[in-house]
Amino acid sequence: MTETRKTTYREALNEGLREALQQDERVFLMGEDVGHYGGCFAVSKGLLEEFGPERIRDTPLSESTFTGAGIGAALGGMRPIVEIMTVNFSLLALDQIMNNAATYLHMSGGLFNVPLVIRMATGGGKQLAAQHSHSLEGWYAHIPGIKVLCPATMEDARGMLWPALLDPDPVLIFEPAVLYPMEGTLPEKPTPVAIEGAKVLHQGKDLSLISYGSSLHKSLAAAEQLAGEGIAAEVIDLRCLRPLDDTTIIGSVSKTHRALIVDEGWRSGSLSAEISARIMEQAFYQLDAPVERVCSAEVPMPYAKHLEEAALPQVETIVATARRMLNG
């Protein structure tokens, strides 16, 4: 039995950052309030003291330029980690991410790859209203040329950063803000993780709950509740939103014959729509029921707690939908 230790999602991320900074001199972190403040969500707390201001760089509120500077520094031989405070703010840097980071390699005919990692907080659940709470990682997963990760477990929170830094191309890591205080355990000596492929976290034969990020934990809670009702739900953690792991998704659906996608993004034109389409294309004749989705309500995220809760996917909705899919 491997020895384990208690930690939080936030501390696991911090550990991943510290290890990366220790292992490679070329790695540095830059973003708003990553240094003296300790990180908006305290993810980079203590790193300035340990690694100094050359490697833990507080930036002005210039998302587009410090993201573009990350691209330039990556081209120039460094391994930058750019932190953008929240996904909503990343829209100010979208030109650099989309028009430069994602295109340089292809547009230059293979001459210039961009080994850049961009981290940002995503998602709702903290009553931060309509400019700090959206789940736009599905938008980013639309873009060829970048990889999109969403760690939902302690292992991935700690482990995804290093392989992302080894990757020769731009990698975006989305951290669901609601998970930062989540408690859990890590092995004393964690093993490396891969930044490709989904994982089946809970086996089941009756339906597949396909999810990621904070919705993954709601899906796991729903599976537990469903088990009490005699429904065996399989729970998939997508982990990597681009490229999607079709093999794991289709394999699971081919076993359970029912798929429910739980995605905090909006439904229209979304990642959940993409996954649903892939199931139709690759496993249509395996299905015993139509693919269903639990997504966020199509509204800008409201502030009031009861309204925000109503807007987000909830365990009860997942359970009710699953039950209906099984029992008609």
């Binding site: 500077a69 330039g72 520094a73 081209l75 120039g76 460094m78 650099q96 028009n99 430069n100």
Partner: peptide, 30 residues
């Protein structure tokens, strides 16, 4: 683009090359 020329594009978004140049210079400084 050219590697031996150290030519980093050809950027067709007006202003889009400036942050990249800042980053290249940052890499040199570091």
């Amino acid at each position: 683009f050219g590697v031996k020329e150290r030519l980093y594009g050809g950027n067709a978004i007006v202003g889009g090359g400036l942050p990249v140049a800042v980053g290249l210079a940052l890499a040199d400084k570091l």
